[in-house]
């Protein structure tokens, strides 16, 4: 599996291989800003969604039209019949402010990360998988058995990680931004195709919700795997940039 140029060039220089360079400064900074923004977006997004926990497909939808599905949670508006006898307080004011502030921050971070990823070949070396069915099966089997990863995996991502990270970076994040913008009446007045390609305003909202669910699943899996693989060393690598050499 391809090691990062960053790792291979500097690992040789690390005396005794005690602390091996792992993540570049840009990757570490953008990782933690993104993580921070993710939680701000999730928290505010949950607040926004509870004001109308019903979802629709197509252009329009409201309490007078059938829902695609409704979340079994209480709402922050009396207009939505939830079966619960209480209405949660309206938090949409600061939630929407926070949601867009965090969205701008994560957009700027994503652009920085994308430029870095292309110029430093970070995408090619560390993120994009080198496709091999045999390798994929081997890695799947290893994961299914909850095997501790090989020491070499502290230095380079395995194929499943690469598939997961590629999907998030190149599919889920762009989809999140697209479906978010497609809900903006101002933005779609300038770019109507952005919402029409998705099937309408309510489709954009529903897709935004599902993309958020997938991102939550990813983060849960990501954190679980970090803990499984060795929390301290992985956190050290993503914070200080250096990883402690692992031995079996």
């Amino acid at each position: 599996m391809a090691d990062s140029a960053w790792v291979s060039s500097l690992a040789a220089a690390a005396p005794g291989g005690k602390r091996i360079p792992r993540h570049s400064a840009v990757v570490r900074i953008t990782h933690w800003i993104t993580a921070f923004c993710f939680f701000a977006l999730l928290f505010s997004g949950v607040q926004l969604v509870i004001s109308h926990p019903r979802f629709y497909w197509g252009e329009v939808g409201n309490v007078n039209t059938p829902a695609l599905f409704q979340l079994p949670i209480p709402a922050s508006r009396e207009a939505v019949k939830t079966g619960y006898n209480f209405v949660l307080p309206d938090q949409n004011g600061w939630s929407r402010y926070l949601h867009f502030q965090a969205a701008w921050a994560v957009m700027a971070t994503a652009i920085w990360y994308a430029i870095h990823g292309l110029l430093s070949r970070h995408f090619r070396l560390n993120i994009l998988p080198e496709w091999s069915w045999a390798e994929l099966l081997r890695s799947l089997r290893e994961h299914a058995r909850f095997q501790k990863p090989a020491p070499s995996e502290a230095l380079s991502y395995n194929i499943l990680q690469r598939v997961a990270y590629s999907s998030v970076v190149f599919l889920l994040f762009p989809l999140m931004i697209w479906t978010g913008l497609a809900m903006s009446p101002g933005f779609v007045s300038a770019f109507p195709l952005s919402v029409e390609l998705l099937g309408g305003h309510q489709s954009a909202r529903t897709l935004h919700f599902f993309a958020a669910l997938l991102l939550i699943l990813f983060v849960l899996g990501h954190v679980a795997m970090v803990i499984h693989a060795g929390f301290a060393n992985r956190m050290r690598a993503m914070t200080t940039g250096r990883v402690k050499e692992e031995t079996r």
Binding site: L48, S51, H52, V60, N62, R96, H201, Q202
Partner: peptide, 12 residues
């Protein structure tokens, strides 16, 4: 035109 409520619902 579509009226889009900040809560998430809409109608034309």
């Amino acid at each position: 035109t579509q009226l889009i409520c900040e809560e998430g619902w809409s109608y034309i």
